[in-house]
Structure formats: structure tokens, C-alpha cells
Design a protein around this nucleic acid. Sequence first.
DNA 1: GCTGATGCGTC
DNA 2: GTCGGAC
DNA 3: GTCCGACGACGCATCAGC
Length: 894
Amino acid sequence: MISVRYHRGLELPEHGLWLDPEDPRPFAFVSHAHADHIARHPEFIASAGTARLMQARLGGERQGHILEFGQPASFRDFQITLLPAGHIFGSAQSLIESEHGSLLYTGDFKLRRGLSAEPTEWRHAETLIMETTYGLPKYRLPPTEAVMARMVAFCQESLEDGAVPVLLGYSLGKAQEILCAILKAGLTPMLHGAVYQMTEIYRQLKPDFPDGYERYSAGKVEGKVLICPPSANRTIMLTRIKNRRVAVLTGWALDPGATYRYQCDAAFPLSDHADYTDLVRYVDLVQPKRVLTLHGFAAAFAADLRERGFDAWALSEENQLELLLRRAPSTPQPERPAAPVAAMPQSEFGAFATLGDQIANSTSKLKKIALLADYLRSLNETQLPIAARFLTGRAFAQSDMRTLQVGWAVIKRAVMAAGGLAEQEFRAISRQYADAGKATYEALLERTTPRDFSLVDALALFDQLHAARGPLVKGELLQQRLAALTPLEASYLVKILTGDLRIGLKSGLVEEAIAAAFQADLHTVREAQMFTGDLGEVAALASKNQLEEASLHLFRPIQVMLASPEPTAQAVWSRIAAHDAPAAWTEDKFDGIRAQIHLGSGRAEIFTRDLRQITGQFADLARAARSYPGEAILDGEILAYEQGRRLTFFDLQKRLGRKTEDDLFLGANDIPVVFKAFDLLYLNGTSLLKRPLAERRLALESLTLPPGLEVAPIHRVASAEEIEAAFQAARARGNEGLMIKDGASFYTPGRRGQAWLKFKKELATLDVVVVGAEQGHGKRSHVLSDYTFAVRDEVSGHLLTIGKAYSGLTDEEIEELTEHFTATTIARHGRYREVVPEIVLEIAFDSIQPSDRHASGLAMRFPRIKAIRRDKTPEQIDTIAHARRLVATEMVSH
DNA sequence: GCTGATGCGTC
DNA sequence: GTCGGAC
DNA sequence: GTCCGACGACGCATCAGC
């Protein structure tokens, strides 16, 4: 076998020949003309193309042996044959044959066909020395055409936005390949000086190389695609182009976070090196007795090959000895030292975040519960409730009225500042990741100096954020903390801030884990959760075996019982019949705010369905309620109410949002309200939750309620027809629809069961045309799922927007429409795309009212897409006048 | 003092 | 509030 | 069947910037 030594290049000591040495050597083979491979060797062997490019780059006089591909040449005691390597124009492999054996050195190579390099050839050899830049299985490049298509789309979108697309690729080889693709797509390229120079040489060497490009000139770059070497990124030349969108083309684009590593907006995986698949394939083609690997993941790939039965070793200074002594294989050492492991032990919050990731990474429900239970058990009394709350994506307990007032805008600014990222870089990262947590992780990777952070610290931070006034102050606080966290910790902090952990953890699973961790009965845990509305407290109680303490208490709100929707009277009746019930109760479905009123000892508190206290906003109601002599918990609805004037839900909302406490007397503009009670959960020390509705109703009707609190009337129905009649009567009374309840049912807090049904009908439908589309969020971030639509002004003929919707379409339909709207985009305004108005939708809604949100001056309540009307053209959509008539009919019908 | 952006909570 | 989809 | 995520309009509060 031919001996090989490695020191800043390969040496074949028996033959006095160097292969691609980094420093000048007396006699060397130069595989290709990239700057890191060429040096001023007095005597060298190269292909004609490489020699020509070398001359252009280095100048000067040297003794060059220029060999034709496939033609063997003899030197001293060896014979050498050059073979095309497919890396760039002129790149060559060398096959060396002598009395010691045969050796094939690939240099940089790839197997896929490029636009500029000669197609790769190979020969059998005893020893194969190969470059293994992408020697890990995760580096599998997508087909070139697909990458090029994405790159072209990136350019087109940038141009549509009025931005200058900038593509980064090596000036020799890749830049020319990019150039060809850009020309083919009909776009106008402009070349950075270095790229221009190389391309000119290319054209001399390859007469068929396309024309139609020009050298960069600052004033003329608008509307063109600029191609630059990677080194040009962040240079003054580029930063002067204000509205630029930069994409890098490199195999490393397969790494997550590539955009931020390269500080650009996009990264596309295109490489002049063989990817993992081709590396393996090449070894199979050459069938060597021994493989020596070089560059990139050399050690990992060698180990991989050994597992495939090859005698394979990484060539580097370190395992030189191992190689020469031919010792038995030990565990492969990684080529790149692993990222320095923090000497600091993991913080408490870090452990929480790690657990989150473990849960996210396991698909088995049982495993998630087991992981979670172990974790919960490991916590002390202080940590437990905090962690349990965080696990549900909340900073505070549900019953805690505090809010952070920290949304995506504040988080974004804080993350950018903490990581020292520019708006553009951050946008590029966050665009890739649907969820804020992941984007934060990528944005902060290797950009923070972590300090210890406990669960209590995290809670304290949330307290501070709540207390801080104004988004700027909050952002500042958050930024300082983020800068002192590990990226993983930061991502979980952000996940909690956005209220969304996204690790496949439902609150139900946390309940199961609590039960498992403390050997508690799952049902008891669930019940405790309904009573307390705070998993933190439930966990704490469970750990102390005191779950029974969570029960119905006066002035502690419990979750409300919910109803399932049914579309028709017949559907409602089928449900009832399925329960073998001879009849059911009906109530009007009021269009107000669900409320739970606790009364007792001269005190009254009002809570929303989210267990928020709103006593202050409805002080007039509370004041009246206080006069009730006994103890009771009422479930019902607060309604805007005024004799002789129709008040709407929107009137009611005016009071809801208000922060200031109601004054002793109603202000002149205040909306008067009444409370319609429809259930009684507790009476004079006794919980009625586990009594049938019929009994609860009887008790409710026996109460003498103070003025302002009324009992909602009920009726009995025993057929679909009676249900329909009751519905019509409810509508005639100005109510939204009908509630239908099983008289035998218990009150199940927080559940949406079949015991309570709700029956509403859409008001009407409108045929509209889609004029705009937007990207969705989360799971829908890769589709255009958000459609703005319009009706026609029959006078001017203009389209006037009237609403937005996505709800009602299947995933498949959304995908279809995404494709359609991508193709028919007229203009882009940020996220919003104006599209050709041709898709007609039928939109259903519950009501329609004047609004200045949309150009039509109308807006719908609960709009949903009922159908895509492919049978209709935009000329056939409804008119604004028709829509206005619907507003009118609704007004008079009540 | 007004306006627009943002956050939150109601349906 | 609405809806479709996953389990 | 039940839960969950991704969505609608609206109103108020708060703050930043004019």
C-alpha cells in the first residue's frame, strides 16, 4: 500500500509528492483552484482548467504539468491519471499507481451534475482518500432543481416587495451555477466584482457559457438579482443597499439556525461537495481496501464506514499515530470538539426546560406522564406549584387576575436586544419557526452568558413584568433576563409568556401526572382542578394528600359547565332521545356574559367563565345582590337591558372592558344590566353540583332574589317540532337561540358534555370574493390560511372588504387555495398579499353590523366559510346593498 | 390631546 | 364565539 | 366524544409618538 502522511496537506513520502498542500511544497498536485487549495509550488500537476484559474488568481511563473483528464502520465517512480471531480470547473481527482499500490485522491468532489463542472468519473483503487465535508447522515441535499426553484422564488418575492435580492455563493463555481439559474428564470443578474471577474474567465474557458450579466453598480441594482461571494455579506457595499434580502447558498443550510449563523434572511442547501448519500455511494463505486477521510466529519464518517465493513480512518494530525500503528479501533473521536460544556450545573429552570423538551420529544402519552410524574415528585413545596402552573403555559394561576401585558411585540424586541440581532436577522429566524419559543432558541444560540435561574426566580420575573409600567420597561426587564439564560431556558420562558408550551402537553396530562406522582385518584385530581382552577394548588394539595380540601366554597369560583352545539332542532332531539329522556328543558340562549355570582353574609362577588372577578365592573349588580339574606352560588348571564331600547352585546362590552370601578351611581352613559340566573350550584352550606338539574331548578325558583337578579324561564319540550317552536319564540324575544338541558343531569364544571346543548342558526350567507390572503400562524405558518374577502359596490363596481375568515375549510382546501393565491398574488404589503379576485366563497355568519374595520362599513359576527363556490364568478357575488339589507332585517326582527 | 399599535378578554 | 382534526 | 389549536369582530386600557 502507498504510505500517506498528513501535515497541512497529504504527503506520499515514497514518491515525494504532495496532494493539495496548504503551504508551498517542491512538488504538488493541485486538485482545483479554490483559494485554500492553491499555493505557490515551484512544480505542480493540475488540469488545464485549474492551471488557467490558478494563473489568474496567483500570477507569476511556475513549472506546471498540465494533464488531460483520463490520460496517464509518468513521473519518477509513479504514474498519475487525472479524473474529473465535479466540484468546480477544472477540478480533478488523481489516481496514483506505483509498485506500492494504487491510490485515488478525490480532492473536493461531488457526484451530482453541476452546470459548470465536468461530470465525475471514478476508478477502482486500493486506497481511497476522500473529502468528507458532509460526512453525517443529516446532510442529505435535496435535488438541485428544487433548491434552485426555492432560490428563484425567494428572488421573485423579494422583487415583488421592492427589495433587492442578494445571493451569496463562492465566486468560483457556485456563483456561476446561481447565475445560470437566475438567467434561466428570466431575472436580471448583477455580479459583485469578484464574481464578475471569475465569470469572465469561465466564459473564456467555456465558450457556451451564457451572456447577459453585468458588473455591480450601486445606482442600477434596483430590480436586479445581486450575486456576491459570501465574504461580501455585511460589507458596506451591501449594507448600503437599504432594502435588501440576503440568501446564502451552502450545504450548511441544512443546519438549523443557518440563517443566523450566516446573518442573512434565507439559506438554501446547495453545495459543490458530495452529500452524505453520495459519499457512501462513492465508496461503494470505488470498492477500496482502505479509506482515509479528510475534512468535515472525517472521524464520524470513518466510523460509519467501519460499521459498513470498510477499513476506514480519519486523516488528521491526532490520529496519525493510530493510523500508522494500525491499532485496533477504539471509539471514534469526534472531528470537531463538542461545544464546550458549561461547567455550571444545570439550573432549576433549566431542568424544567429540559423536561419540556423531553416531553416534546416523546410521542407516548404514558412516557410523558411518567417523565412528568418523576419530575413533579422531585420538587419541594415551593417549587411544585410554580412548576405545575408553568407546565400549563401560565405564569400565574388561572384565578389570578394579573396579566403580564407582554405580547409578541415586546418579546421580539427583547430577544433581538438580548441576542444583539438586527430586525432583519431576527425576522429571518422567526419566519422559519412557527413558534416563538423555538425562534427564541435559535436567535439566542451562543449569544448569551447564562447565570443560575430558579423556578422562584422565574416567578419573581413574572411578578416584576406584571408590575412594570409600559412595554419599554417590560422589554428592558425581559431583555436583561434573556441575556442571562441558556437558549433553552430562554425559549421556555418565552413559551410561558406566550401562554403556549407546544410540547404536546394537555392540561389533562398534567392532571394524570399529578395523580401518578402522588398516588392520588385521577378523578379527585380532576375535580380539584375544577374547583380551584389552579393546577399549582392542585399539585400542592395532592403532594400533601389534601385534595379533599378543594371543594365548592363560597367566594371561590369554579369552572362553568358548557354546552355542545347542534345545528338543527332534529339533531337536538336525536341527542335527547339517545339518552332515553322523554323530555328536556329549554331556556333562551342569552347574548350576554356568562357569570357566576356568589352571595352570602352581605357580600357578593361576580366571576366570569374564566374565573375572573368582575365585581367591580358590575358594582350596581353586586350592590343589589348583597341584600340577599342567605348563601348561594348562581350561574347565569349578565345582559345589557333597558326597557324600550334594544341593547346589544357590544353595549355590554363597553362596561366589561372598563378597569375603573363603577361609581356609586351609574354614569349617564352606563349600560344598565340584569342578571338572568339559570342554575343554582350552592345553597346555604350545601353543594348542589351532584343534584339533578330538575332539583337545582326547583331550589332556584324557590329563592327570592333581589331586583336586578332574575330567574330565567324554562320550558319543557318533547319533540323536534316543539324545539323548533321554542327556538322561534326565543328569537322573537330577541335572544340568540336556545339552550336545551337534560333535567336529570348533574352540574359538571368545566365540561362540555351532552347534557347541555345549544341551538343557534346562522343569520344568512353571503357570496363574496377573496381579495387578500395572509400566512397563518403555528401549524398554519406555511400556508395562506387567512382570507380577506369583499362584496361589490353595485354603484361604482368596486370591491369592498367585509370580513376575514379561514374557519370552515379543510386542511386540503387550504393547501389548494394556498397554491392558487401564491400564483395569483398581485402585490405584497408585508404579510398581506393582494390576490386576483376570482375565488368566490360562501360565508355564513350569526349577525352583521356597521363597523369601520372594513371598507364596506360592515362586519360580520362569527364569520365562517361554508363553501368554495367554484360554480360562481366574481361577477355573481353579493352586493353591498344586499348586505346592508341584512343588517336592516336583523334590526326589525327583534 | 389625538392617533395608531399592542395586549387582553368577551362573545 | 366558530371550525376541523387528532386521539 | 372530547379536547385542542387556529381562527373571527369588538371594546377598553395603555403607551409611544406626534
